[in-house]
Amino acid sequence: MNQQNPQEPNPQQPGWGGPPMPPGHNGPPFQPLPPKKSRGKAIGLGCLGVVGLLVVVAVIATAAGGGGDESGGSGDVAPAASTAEGEQPATEAKPSDKAAGTGEAEKKKAKVVVFKVWGTAPAGALGPLDITYGSDSDSRQGKWKDGGFTATLPLNDDALYYTVTAQLQGSGDIHCSVTVDGHTEKAHAAGGYNLCHAQATAGLLGGWD
């Protein structure tokens, strides 16, 4: 019978790391079971889940509240007003266009031909002055009144000339003129049945002579 050293641990005795090994067992020593998970970690993870759920609920509630404000109409009034105010300068910028249009209208209005006769012209046997005016395609009769005569016609760019003629009836002293696009032609007649004849002719390169 083998005697065991009291100093050496006996694997078959309890209290040395595990239950006693059966006789003749040559396997590895007893491996203790892994420790159980800490309850504190499980509790901490549960608390984090609750906090996360509360945050999600708060975000949903905030989004719902913001959507209600947008659909309520009170939040839409201010942007509409600002947009309207923002569009005002664009509508007020149109007077410059109107001014340009007015300038063009005045320019077109200025393009007229002016005919004038003035001076002293006593009436003769056939009456007062005999006045004719117009263009190469439009001739008209004028009337002497209160010592003068004035008439206007629209400027026709295709006209070859514009003219005015006044004939005295026995005596008098008169002047006549025709103005086309800023250019004026003048003439003079005195005594008898003389003619006062002024004519502006279209130039070959544009303008009036």
Rank of each mutant, 00 (worst) to 15 (best):
D146C: 00
D138C: 02
A123K: 12
D146K: 13
T120P: 00
D146Q: 12
G142Y: 02
D138W: 06
G147M: 03
Y133V: 10
D136W: 05
R140C: 00
R140I: 01
V117Q: 02
F115R: 01
D136H: 09
W144K: 05
A121Q: 05
T120G: 03
G134H: 06
V114K: 14
G124Q: 06
V114I: 14
G134M: 08
K116F: 01
G142D: 04
T132M: 12
V113T: 02
W118F: 11
K143F: 11
T132L: 11
K145P: 00
P122L: 08
G142A: 06
Q141T: 15
G124C: 09
S139D: 12
Y133E: 06
D146H: 07
A123R: 05
I131C: 09
W144V: 06
A121E: 04
F115D: 02
T132H: 12
S137L: 08
Q141S: 14
G127M: 10
W144H: 04
K116E: 14
S137T: 15
A123P: 10
F115Q: 02
L126H: 11
S135I: 08
L129Q: 10
A121C: 09
Q141K: 14
G134N: 08
S139F: 03
R140H: 14
Y133D: 07
F115P: 02
D130Y: 13
Q141P: 03
G147P: 02
K145S: 13
S135M: 11
V117I: 10
L129D: 08
K145W: 02
S137Y: 03
I131E: 05
V113D: 00
W144I: 04
W144D: 02
D138H: 12
G147H: 04
D138E: 15
G124F: 07
G147K: 10
G124E: 05
G127H: 11
G148A: 07
D146R: 12
V117W: 01
T132Q: 15
W118P: 00
D146G: 04
